[in-house]
C-alpha cells in the first residue's frame, strides 16, 4: 500500500483545498469517520494503480529503452512503442489490420466451435460408457501427446494451405482440453447427488440430463477456456507457415519485408486478441458456474 499513500500525498499537496476529502485522509489527524468512508474507494484506486504498475513500467521501458539505451542498429529491430502504435494506426487506417484480424478470428472461431461440439459429445460418451473409454483411451492418449504443430505439415499436405487445413489444426488443438475436462467433469460428479437422484427413480437419461451434465458444466468450461487460448496460439503458428492473410501472416510478412513496426503491431494485436478471448471465456464460465462459488466453503 505504499503507492496509494504516495499518490495521495502528492494530490494533497498539489490541491489541498479542492481535493479536501483525499487530502484529509492523507493527514494523520484526519477524523476516523471520514477516513473510514473514503478508505475503501482510495484502497481500490490504489490497488488498480499497483496492479497496472508492472504493465506501465514495461511500456515505459519499451518506449524509452530503445531510444536511450539501445544502439542504433538495435533500435531498427526494436522500435519504441510510439512507432509501433503509429504503425498500428496506419494499418487500421488502411483497413489491413481489420482484414487480417477477421481472417484469423474466423478461422479460430470455426475450428474452436467444431472442437467444442465434437469434444463435448465424445467426452460425454467416453465418460458414460466405460468400455468405450477403455477402447479409445490409448489412441486418444497418443494423439493428445502429439503436439498439434508437429502435425501441421501433415494437415498442410493433406488439406492444402487453404482455410480447411487451418481450421482443422485449430480444431485439433482445441479438441483435447475440452475432451479431457468433459470426461473429468462427468467422472467427478458427487456420488451422493447420483444416489439422491436415483432414490427418486430417475432414468439413466434423466439422471444424465438433470444431474451429471449440470454438475459437469463448470469443469467443461475450464476446458473450453483452455481450448480458446490454444486455438489462437496454434492458428498464429499455422498462419506463419503458410497463409495469404491473418495475423500470423501479417507478422511474418512484415518481418520479411523489413516493416519492423508493422511486425510489432501484429504481435501487439495478437496479445490483445488473446486477452480479449480469455476475458470473454472467463466471463461466460463465471456466468455458468455461479453456483459453484462457495463449494470450497461448504461444511461437508
Amino acid at each position: 500500500m505504499t503507492a496509494p499513500t504516495l499518490t495521495k500525498d502528492a494530490a494533497a499537496s498539489a490541491a489541498p483545498v479542492a481535493d479536501a476529502d483525499v487530502g484529509r485522509t492523507a493527514q494523520p489527524a484526519a477524523t476516523r469517520h471520514l477516513s473510514s468512508l473514503v478508505r475503501p474507494g482510495v484502497r481500490r484506486v490504489g490497488r488498480v494503480i499497483w496492479a497496472s504498475g508492472a504493465i506501465v513500467l514495461f511500456l515505459l521501458l519499451w518506449e524509452l529503452g530503445p531510444t536511450y539505451l539501445a544502439s542504433a542498429s538495435t533500435r531498427v529491430f526494436l522500435p519504441p512503442l510510439h512507432e509501433v502504435l503509429r504503425a498500428l494506426g496506419s494499418l487500421i487506417a488502411k483497413g489491413q489490420l481489420q482484414n487480417h484480424l477477421a481472417a484469423s478470428v474466423t478461422r479460430s472461431a470455426s475450428g474452436f466451435g467444431i472442437a467444442v461440439v465434437a469434444a463435448v459429445a465424445l467426452g460425454l460418451l467416453v465418460a458414460w460408457y466405460r468400455s468405450l473409454d477403455r477402447f479409445l483411451n490409448p489412441l486418444l492418449e497418443v494423439f493428445r501427446n502429439t503436439a498439434a504443430l508437429a502435425l501441421l505439415p501433415v494437415f498442410t499436405l493433406l488439406l492444402g494451405i487453404g482455410e480447411t487445413s487451418k481450421i482443422s489444426i485449430v480444431a485439433y488443438a482445441a479438441f483435447f482440453p475440452v475432451l479431457l475436462n468433459t470426461i473429468a467433469g462427468v467422472r467427478t460428479v458427487d456420488p451422493l447427488l447420483i444416489r439422491a437422484a436415483r432414490s427418486l427413480g430417475l432414468s439413466n437419461f434423466r439422471l444424465f440430463q438433470k444431474v451429471i451434465l449440470p454438475s459437469a458444466v463448470p469443469t467443461i468450461f475450464t476446458g473450453i477456456r483452455m481450448a480458446g487460448t490454444s486455438s489462437i496460439l496454434v492458428l498464429i503458428a499455422a498462419e506463419m507457415v503458410g497463409a495469404k492473410a491473418g495475423l500470423g501472416y501479417l507478422i511474418v510478412n512484415a518481418q520479411s519485408s523489413f516493416l519492423i513496426p508493422d511486425m510489432y503491431a501484429g504481435i501487439l494485436t495478437v496479445s490483445l486478441l488473446g486477452l480479449l478471448v480469455n476475458y470473454l471465456l472467463v466471463a461466460v464460465e463465471r456466468r455458468f458456474s455461479r453456483w459453484r462459488t462457495a463449494v470450497g466453503s461448504q461444511s461437508n
Binding site: 458427487d190 451422493l192 447427488l193 444416489r195 439422491a196 436415483r198 432414490s199 427418486l200 427413480g201 444431474v211 449440470p214 454438475s215 458444466v217 453456483w291 459453484r292 463449494v295 461437508n300
Partner: peptide, 19 residues
C-alpha cells in the same frame, strides 16, 4: 427399485448446488 412412494433424506443434504 426406487419409487416415489418413498423419499430419502441424506445426512449430507444432497442438494443440487446449481439449483
Amino acid at each position: 427399485g426406487p419409487g416415489r412412494d418413498r423419499a430419502v433424506v441424506f445426512q449430507q443434504y444432497a442438494l443440487f448446488p446449481w439449483r
